[in-house]
Write a protein that binds this DNA or RNA. Structure first.
Lengths: 157, 157
DNA sequence: CAGTATCCTGAACGATACTG
DNA sequence: CAGTATCGTTCAGGATACTG
């Protein structure tokens, strides 16, 4: 993406997307949430170049979206695996939302190749909007309210 | 993004992101959801080149994420404005999710420049995961279940 | 005002070879 | 196995000029 610094400061949507919107990144996150941890496994599943994969893993690690954990196979040198973090898990509503929107609006038959369910209840799960009390809110009922912050006001003088 | 056809077929996350992950696209959607409709207004707010804006509006319109509506100022030729569609509104959980993740994890002070509230209740709103009954589900409780479809099975023979 | 056309540049990516 | 290094290409996007 490479959005300007000004955009990033003013819009968290753009900021987040500039991080996870790069090619392959979201697929890495998808895989790591499904239990993939090792370089070579990512490489085979994603079929991207090792250089790109390496770069993405680094960016994601620096951003706190992956955690690098050392391990050592008997007789081998230390290697690293990549694990999801709290921040990765907190991104799940976005991932699920992207997936389900795509299933509805881009898949020819309106359904995708992956189901999401609760482990506990087995029920299907979807991304939605809720209020502070946990009650569902319709997307049509949203309002976005820009909060003018004091620091930058001089700009529009 | 430009993910391969195979990726798109297999992953709605990648498919959706290849559409809305292009530079400027998400900002157009953000603005149109806030009531911006005209070419020049987008141009001024986004500060991108008219060629890129034109391309994005076209892509979004073709994807059903914008609706082109004709209007005519007195004495002028017909022009068009761009309105959100049902599909745009259905993308709101994703947008809000992206925004709130960015606010939490990328903003220096952990809060962003925009609040989201319900018009009806005035309560703060966030993106979350819910089950079929509308009950909140923890991201940690998710499982993603690949559905092997018959058509393509030959591939891994 | 609402775009289209053109030119140009950077950098992102793919392919491939190499290293510990 | 887990990466790093290098090279070449492509292409998206910025700047700008032009049109109805």
């Amino acid at each position: 993406m490479n959005i300007t610094a000004s955009d990033l400061r003013h819009c968290s949507i753009a900021a987040t997307l500039s991080l996870i919107g790069e090619k392959w990144t979201i697929l890495i996150l998808r895989d790591v949430l499904q239990g993939v941890t090792r370089f070579d496994d990512f490489l085979r599943r994603l079929e991207c170049s090792p250089a790109v994969l390496s770069a993405r893993l680094k960016t994601l690690t620096e951003a706190g979206l992956l955690r690098k954990v050392g391990y050592r196979e008997p007789g081998e040198r230390e290697r690293f695996e990549y694990r999801p973090t709290r921040a990765t898990v907190e991104l799940l509503p976005v991932l699920i939302g992207l997936m389900q929107w795509g299933d509805c609006h881009m898949a020819p038959d309106g359904e995708g190749p992956v189901q999401v369910r609760s482990r506990a209840s087995g029920k299907l799960v979807r991304a939605a909007l809720v209020d502070e009390g946990g009650a569902l809110v319709s997307p049509r009922d949203m309002q976005m309210i820009p909060m003018r912050r004091p620091e930058q006001e001089s700009e529009d003088a």
